[in-house]
Each structure stands twice: as C-alpha cells, then as structure tokens.
C-alpha cells in the first residue's frame, strides 16, 4: 500500500528517468464513490501504475485516456457515473459518480 501523497514522489522519479508519466486525480464525487477527492493514480507509458481512483472499476478507462494524454493530448476531465450508459461498461455500478482529471507530467 502506498499513500496518495507519496505517489507524487514516484511520478517525479519516473519522469526524471525519462519515462512518460500521467497523473489521474479524483476531483469530485457524488454518492458512494469509493475513493475521495484527491485520490490519485500514477501511470507510465507502459501501463505500470500505482495508486487508485476507484475501487478498481474505472482504472482501465482512465489509463486508456492517460495514454493519449502522455502522447501529447491536452489534460482532460473525465466523468464516470451510473447515470451514464457507460457506467456498467466501466463497472462503476456501486451508485457513485466521479470526475477524474488526467494530466501528463511535462
């Protein structure tokens, strides 16, 4: 287990090694979202990741977006929730909605 704050040390270290790094951060939640605002996930271009932005249900979708951001796309704000048809697809069926900000370390 790794504390959220320490993930940023990892992000810095990875970037210094020359890896492409993206940070995903929960910026808002409604209902019974599993991880509070401020929760983070750090991922590199090979998909190595630390931390979490949900109980595991939306990480796959977040990482797909993170790959594009690492390849030069601007930061983006993602939203997942049960009101969305996609919710079942991404698996956030636990009754919550969550907004995740995805950015690259440049």
């Amino acid at each position: 287990m790794i504390e959220d704050a320490r993930l940023l040390d990892v992000a810095e270290a990875w970037r210094r090694e020359g890896r492409r790094v993206a940070i995903a951060t929960v910026v808002s939640t409604w209902g019974s979202s599993p991880r509070p605002a401020g929760s983070q996930l750090v991922v590199d271009e090979r998909g190595e990741m630390l931390g979490s932005v949900s109980g595991g249900c939306i990480e796959g979708a977040v990482i797909r977006e993170a790959m594009e951001v690492m390849r030069g796309a601007p930061p983006r704000l993602l939203e997942f929730g049960v009101s969305d048809e996609q919710a079942w697809e991404v698996g956030l069926a636990c009754g919550g909605r969550v907004q995740v900000y995805v950015e690259a370390v440049e």
Binding site: L8, D9, E12, E103, V105, E106
Partner: peptide, 10 residues
C-alpha cells in the same frame, strides 16, 4: 503538470 511545479510541490 510541469515537472518544475511537481518538484516544488514534493
């Protein structure tokens, strides 16, 4: 996030 800002934060 710029690396310089991340470093300052850390």
């Amino acid at each position: 996030m710029r690396l310089a800002l991340l470093e300052a934060l850390n």
